[in-house]
């Protein structure tokens, strides 16, 4: 199994996690802090602490990963910058992990949930949302990660009768969601945030699937691309 380091700054939380192997077993070491606007101060010491705790150097990693989004634009770029810089400096491949997939995995690992719709508040009256089927730590995406207003949220086609669970800050917009969605969601965990400890697990699978890339090719995935309006439109 590969040794991986993952970073995340996509929300108010800041986190880092290391996947290592001792005595034939996988082990995940992690740091997590709710630290709004403090990512620039907290992220690098977390990396240092993890490497020290595991007693390894960056050059012993097989790859690095970061929460590629969706999430706070600036946060995504902080994590991307640090991860790209580390990977480029250490000459290692990089992976981008969906923050929504990480949320889904968090719900699955903690509560053994199978059908999870992660959603994050995207501001401007919209949310980022995905839909995942989770089995034995494996995730399958049932609808592409998207940005949309809560009023337009739908359950994934063919899974309208499934018992879905909502996770993440996006579910705070519950009141604005269509009745069909509300009826299909049996439970919500608004307080779960994307975390590197889930990303490092997802990244391990992505790495095994050959998804590691040169660092500059692994860009944030913002989902919201309309951020400016051209003259005269």
């Amino acid at each position: 199994m590969p040794t991986l380091l993952a970073l995340d700054a996509s929300s108010n939380a800041c986190s880092a996690a290391l996947m290592i192997h001792c005595d034939g077993r996988d082990e995940v070491l992690s740091r997590f802090a709710l630290a709004p606007r403090e990512h620039t101060r907290r992220l690098m010491p977390m990396v240092d602490e993890l490497l020290a705790e595991a007693g390894i150097e960056l050059c012993q990693l097989d790859a690095l990963a970061y929460g590629r989004g969706p999430g706070s634009f600036t946060g995504l770029r902080i994590a991307a910058g640090v991860a790209q810089g580390l990977a480029f400096g250490a000459d290692k491949p990089l992976l981008g992990v969906s923050t929504l997939a990480a949320l889904a995995l968090a719900a699955h690992r903690r509560y053994h949930l199978r059908y999870v719709m992660p959603a994050l508040d995207a501001r401007m009256g919209e949310l980022y949302v995905g839909a995942y089927r989770c089995r034995d730590g494996e995730l399958e995406s049932l609808a592409e990660d998207a940005v949309l207003p809560p009023e337009r949220l739908i359950l994934p086609k063919g899974y309208e009768d499934t018992d879905w669970v909502g996770v993440g800050s996006g579910w705070a917009l519950w009141e604005s969601m269509p009745a069909t969605v509300q009826a299909g969601i049996s439970q919500c965990f608004n307080e779960l945030a994307p975390a590197a400890e889930d990303m490092v697990r997802l990244a391990t699978r992505q790495f095994a699937a050959g998804e590691g890339r040169q660092p500059h090719l692994v860009q944030p995935v913002y989902l919201r691309d309309q951020v400016a309006w051209q003259k005269g439109r």
Binding site: T40, M44, V47, D48, L58, F73, T74, R77, I78, A79, A80, G81, V82, A83, Q84, G85, L86, A87, F88, G89, A90
Partner: peptide, 16 residues
């Protein structure tokens, strides 16, 4: 936001 890109990349690279 633009400054942040240079700062983060520089710190990551220097650490590595």
């Amino acid at each position: 936001g633009a400054l942040m890109v240079g700062a983060a990349t520089a710190h990551g690279m220097a650490r590595a």
